[in-house]
Nucleic acid binder design. Structure first.
Length: 645
DNA sequence: TTACGTCCACTTTTT
DNA sequence: GTGGACGTAA
């Protein structure tokens, strides 16, 4: 192995204990250590396919996979690497009988929302007085999902962590149950079901547990601090027969909203007796001035993170803090700065723009498009979530799973003169049929006078294993119908072409749909591969950016209302999580870091004034930690001394 | 029952 | 700028 490691990294990589916890701060070479561990195991004789690497985001999984094959070669490619969801589904599909698993339609967040909305409406009834007091579908989904991910009954969760009255709790539980039942009758699997089903079978059935776990020798887990109790159950089951190698950093825990529990890190040694702990403390990624800022942010916390990173790279420029009047000025300046650097000979791909929310990335994205800067957007709306793409995919989903109520509704109501009521009546009949073929026949009966409606599903059914042909038929039949629905149809048609290209790479419609539900891809990501030699600027949400780095980072829109986000102000734990989000953003930068902010949005100005220091993480930033300069790229800037610091 | 107008709030993070 | 909820005409 040609890679160099420091003594702590080497100790982790070569350790002999049963289980190991690696506490690794930002930029201490976490991913390198995981790759190094895999390489070491393979060199010591472990077959590559008996090593599993579990990551938390799909982006991290891609990163690991590509680094595995570039550093270890062919053996590396045989290591199994993916997110918890991907790996659980993969195993369940390969061992259907063990898990009682049959193919189901994976629901994305939109599907979940729609279904929840539906059952919420049905359970609450027409009484608008009670309707107003029942949380919105999105909120209900969050409660339900959180309870499941933390492995507690929804009733217990609601009683402990919300202040609904008993009668409301019961209504909510009824809604959850209806949602669950509806999922089953429609043949749906949501994200939580994937983990839950896998964890449950492993937990309940010692025989299956053994058979699954003995397929592997080593399970390497990245971002351990973001695992939730449900995921811990899975790891615990595997630990009986496998060696765990878990890497984490509590200062980077930013998924508590999804049930992440850093007890999984803190209690690691207690839960797994035959385990050791190694710490990685040397930071190689960032220059010392960048770490000074990140350390300062963390030091303001009432929590003691016991974490002060020291860089091996003392030299470097101080981070720059730049203020703007409007977010448009800010976006302009960031893009101009990147263009200037590109002209000086840097690559587009050296630059990463980090945003707290996909929403706050919009002005920057608009400017990138305007200036024709090649970029990809990671996080936010995926290609398959766009309305016109969903229109196209709906009919494919019907063919794969004829009980897919949401897809049928979407497909049928596309057609003129078919509204919700007519469609719902038809769907009720279709879903009762025993097979997709019979459903297609029934459809012909129901809409006997509407050949244009009934032909397409039958055609798609002929091409279940030829996604390319299925897409072609669907596009041809639907374009005239959908064209009038949207403005700027031409640009949307490009997305259809893109979908058709992606689908052509898959052996079946089922595989195609499943892949992109589990691994949603943004439109810009899908096209980014088109010019790899040029490279692209990465525009990314902080949550998606974890585990990655770039030479030059722009943390954008770092203003009150975003850090912490205004929606988290009510909950002290949530505020602390927001602080870690900022910490993660700042520690992505290797060489240069720019922190920008603007006050154009009304709420930002309002919360800036209202927060008076306690709820804005850059409040009270001491002089010398950053260069707080007027921008040098010609944008109009007015620093408002009255309100800042 | 559908289509279309108007008015409303509302904009977290991911699998 | 967008999507949902609601009311009304055909």
């Amino acid at each position: 192995m040609s890679m160099d490691f420091n003594p702590q990294q080497r100790a982790a990589i070569e350790h002999q204990a049963r289980h190991l916890l690696v506490l690794a701060g930002a930029g201490t070479g976490k991913t390198r250590t995981i790759i190094g561990r895999a390489a070491h195991l393979i060199e010591s004789g472990t077959p590559a396919e008996r090593i599993v690497i579990v990551t938390f985001t799909r982006r991290a999984a891609h990163e690991i996979r590509s680094r595995l094959s570039s550093t270890i070669g062919a053996g590396g490619a045989r290591v199994v690497a993916g997110t918890f969801h991907y790996l659980c589904l993969r195993i369940m599909r390969a061992r259907r009988r063990w898990f009682g698993y049959q193919d189901m339609t994976i629901m994305d967040r939109d599907d979940q929302l729609q279904l929840m909305k539906l059952v919420r409406g049905e359970c609450v009834g027409g009484k608008s007085s009670t309707k107003a007091t029942v949380p919105a579908a999105a909120q209900l989904l969050d409660y339900y999902s959180y309870a499941r991910n933390t492995n507690q009954p929804a009733s217990e969760y609601l009683r402990k962590f919300t202040d609904f009255e008993q009668s409301s709790v019961e209504l909510l539980l009824d809604i959850f149950n209806a949602y669950k039942t509806r999922k089953q009758t429609n043949g749906y699997l949501d994200y939580d079901d994937i983990l839950h089903r896998f964890a449950k079978v492993l937990h309940d059935d010692a025989h299956v547990r053994e058979r699954v776990a003995t397929q592997y020798d080593h399970v390497l887990v990245d971002e351990m601090q973001d695992t939730n109790p449900l995921q811990w159950l899975i790891l615990e089951s595997l630990a009986e027969h496998c060696n765990l190698f878990c890497v984490g950093d509590d200062a980077q825990s930013i998924y508590a909203f999804r049930g992440a529990d850093f007890q999984n890190v803190h209690s690691f040694s207690d839960r797994l007796p035959q385990s050791e702990v190694v710490k990685l403390e040397q930071n190689y990624r960032s220059t010392q001035p960048i770490l000074e800022l990140a350390n300062w942010v963390l030091a303001q916390s009432p929590l003691n993170y016991d974490k002060t990173l020291h860089s091996e790279r003392a030299e470097g420029t101080r981070p720059q803090l730049v203020d703007f009047d409007t977010e448009l000025d800010e976006a302009q300046w960031i893009v101009a700065a990147i263009q200037a650097r590109k002209n000086e000979g840097n690559s587009w791909s050296d630059h990463m723009i980090l945003c707290r929310t996909a929403y706050s990335a919009r002005p920057v994205e608009a400017r990138l498009i305007e200036q024709k800067v090649p970029y990809r957007f990671v996080g936010g709306i995926g290609l398959l979530q766009m309305a016109h793409v969903k229109d196209l995919l709906a009919v494919l989903r019907c063919a794969v799973n004829h009980r897919d109520e949401l897809a049928w509704m979407r497909y049928l109501t596309l057609w003129p003169r078919i509204g919700e009521v007519t469609a719902a009546r038809a769907v009720e009949r279709l879903a009762r049929e025993a097979s997709a073929a019979e459903a297609a026949e029934t459809l012909k009966e129901v809409f006997a006078q509407r050949k244009e409606v009934t032909e397409l599903p039958a055609t798609v059914l002929q091409h279940l294993t030829q996604p390319k042909l299925a897409l072609k038929a669907a596009m041809k039949a639907l374009e005239p119908v959908v064209k009038t629905k949207y403005e700027r149809w031409e640009s949307r048609r490009n997305d259809w072409q893109l979908i058709s290209k992606l689908a052509a790479n898959h052996a079946s419609l089922q595989a195609f749909l499943e892949t992109y539900t589990l691994d949603p891809m943004s439109a810009t990501e899908a096209t980014a591969g088109d010019n790899p030699q040029e490279g692209v600027v990465t525009l990314i949400t902080v949550h998606s950016a974890k585990g990655t780095e770039a030479k030059v980072c722009f943390a954008a829109a770092v203003q009150p209302g975003n850090y912490p986000h205004s929606r988290s102000l009510a909950d002290p734990d949530a505020i602390e999580e927001e602080r870690r989000v900022l910490y993660v953003a700042l520690t992505r930068a290797c060489d240069e870091l720019f922190v920008t902010r603007s006050l154009s949005r009304g709420y930002a100005r309002a919360s800036w004034n209202a927060s008076t220091g306690t709820h804005y993480f850059l409040e009270g930033l001491p002089a010398g930690v950053v260069d707080w300069d007027a921008p040098g790229f010609g944008a109009a800037v007015h620093v408002d001394d009255d309100v800042i610091g």
